[in-house]
Every structure is written in C-alpha cells, then in structure tokens.
C-alpha cells in the first residue's frame, strides 16, 4: 500500500464510521506491530458474528496481529465459519467458493508478482479444515507441488462447524458427529506431514493457547513464502458449539490437547528456510 492511501477525506470525516476513523488514526499499517502490542492499536478485525468462545475467532484475531506487513497482505478465504469473519477485516480479501482457495491464491499471487515485481505482496490463505483437507485438498496440495509462494493456514476445528457439526477428515478417529453417528472410522488426516512431503518449506501446528508461538509460526510461514516456497500452518481452534462445551472452556480444551499430545505441536523447516529465517530473525523485533 502506498502511504497516502489510508487518509481521511476531511469533508467526510464527520460521517465516517468510528472504527474506520480509529483505523486511520491508530491502525497497524506500516507499524510492525505484533501480538504483544494488542490492546494498544486498532486491530484489523472488527466485531465478528461468530459464537461465544469461538476458538477460530480468537485465532483470526491473533493471525491478523501477526502479519509482518498488513499493508501489503491479501487474504484468500473459503466457505465456512471463517467466511463470516473475513468480511469484517480491514484487508482486501477474497471469498471465492468452497475449497478453491489455494487455486485462487495461486492466480492472485502470480498476478501480484507480475504487477509489483519489486515488492512483497503477501497472499495468505486462511480456511477451515473442511476446505483445506477435504473438498480443496487437491488444490491445496497442487499449490504446494507447484511451489506457489503462498502461506496456507488451516483453522482446524475438527468438523464442518458452519453447517452444523459434521465429521471432517480432520476430526479425531472415533469422534461422534453428524454424518458420523457411530463415530469417525478413520484417523485424522496427517496434513502437516503431507505438507512437509509435498514441498512446503515451513510447516507448523500450533494452538491459540500460546499466542507468541502462534505469532511466530504465522510470521515464519509468511516470510518463508516470500522467498523460499510454500508454507503451511495448522491451528487447533476448538469449537464450543459443535463439541458442546462451555464458551469459557475453549482455551482449556486446547491446553488439554496440547498437554496429552492428542493435538501434537510440531515445526518442520527445510534447511533453506532455516538459513533464510536465521538471517531474517538475527535482529528481529519479535523473537
């Protein structure tokens, strides 16, 4: 974004929505803020219509606060709960269809590379587990095979939550959900391992329990995708509505799964990405 873009037209200042005025005056563009600064600036996400205690909403908030350069970031989303949140963010973002997010992002990233060859335009894919691991898996994997310079983030609530809690490929084995009335018959898809084997230069799985760790994974994924190759971050985002726990228990659920390793956290980095990150993070502000 060129600097004068985010400027209030004085004649309209009195009729602009309050949150827009705040964004212009105290937004994150060009500031290099991180999750540690939350509370001190106007965030990219406005009020959202997701359920009380939604783990996905928390993750979106943290992702938005972790972007290295929000002023040059475009988000490609997909259908699902997150598609209710993305129209609320102050970044240009695309919802195309269910599952085609990585194909759309491939075209977008290449187009932006053609138009802005000397600038990093980060294309960030953020979609649910159904969109990423089920209906869109071929397009997700082919974007990795092709080495598209995209960061792909899965918001993994382990079910199709927006349609009423159906089993997804990321649901745990044995889990009773709609369309799996006698329990899921196969294992959770090992997408981090698949990502590693499919050409991703950086892969991480995290939860919102440790916001700094989540931030680090998101930033690394975006930075590595600029120069090295595709990256993948999987974020566990518990869903109180469909897994029927109290909204205030969301973080405890995530913490429990971290602890008993039913949601294993990992990080795979190729040597090339490692070297690139080492050079970048030498004197970095965050970590």
């Amino acid at each position: 974004m060129s600097k004068p873009m985010l400027k209030m037209t004085t004649a309209f200042a009195d009729v602009m929505p309050a949150e827009y005025v705040e964004l212009v005056q105290n937004g994150p563009f060009g500031k290099g803020y991180g999750v540690a600064d939350l509370g001190s600036f106007k965030e990219l996400i406005e009020e959202h219509p997701l359920c009380a205690g939604c783990g996905l909403a928390l993750a979106v908030r943290l992702i938005m606060a972790s972007l290295p350069t929000p002023e040059d970031t475009v988000v490609v989303g997909s259908t699902g709960c997150s598609s209710l949140a993305f129209p609320q963010i102050a970044l240009q973002n695309i919802h195309s269809l269910f599952g085609n997010q990585n194909a759309v992002a491939s075209g977008l990233k290449r187009a932006l590379k053609l138009r802005f060859p000397d600038k990093h335009k980060d294309v960030l894919v953020v979609a649910g587990d159904g969109a990423t691991a089920d209906i869109g898996l071929d397009m997700v994997m082919h974007s990795w095979f092709r080495g598209e310079k995209l960061a792909t983030i899965m918001l993994d609530n382990e079910a199709y939550a927006n349609t009423g809690g159906q089993e997804s490929g990321m649901s745990p084995e044995g889990c009773v959900l709609n369309m799996a009335p006698t329990g899921k018959k196969f294992k959770k898809i090992a997408l981090p391992e698949i990502a590693r084997e499919s050409g991703c230069a950086y892969v991480a799985s995290v939860t919102p329990v440790q916001p700094r760790k989540l931030e680090k994974a998101v930033r690394r994924a975006i930075l590595v995708a600029r120069e090295v190759g595709p990256t993948y971050v999987q974020i566990f985002v518990p869903c109180p509505t469909n897994f029927k726990f109290k909204p205030q228990e969301t973080l405890a659920k995530a913490k429990q799964k971290e602890k008993d390793q039913t949601y294993p956290l990992r990080e795979f980095i190729t040597p090339e990405a490692q070297a690139y990150l080492a050079a970048l993070e030498g004197g970095g502000k965050h970590d």
């Binding site: 475009v74 490609v76 695309i94 195309s96 269809l97 085609n100 194909a103 759309v104 992002a105 491939s106 075209g107 977008l108 990233k109 290449r110 187009a111 932006l112 053609l114 138009r115 071929d138 397009m139 082919h142």
Partner: peptide
C-alpha cells in the same frame, strides 16, 4: 490441476488486476 482449479486460478489472477 483440473478445470475447476484453473477457472479458480484465473479468477484469482483477474482479481489481482491482470
């Protein structure tokens, strides 16, 4: 990778202004 993906990719590219 398939026609649905191709039509999606050209949509992304067109949205990116090319």
């Amino acid at each position: 990778e398939n026609e649905f993906a191709v039509m999606s990719a050209v949509a992304g590219a067109a949205m990116g202004g090319v």
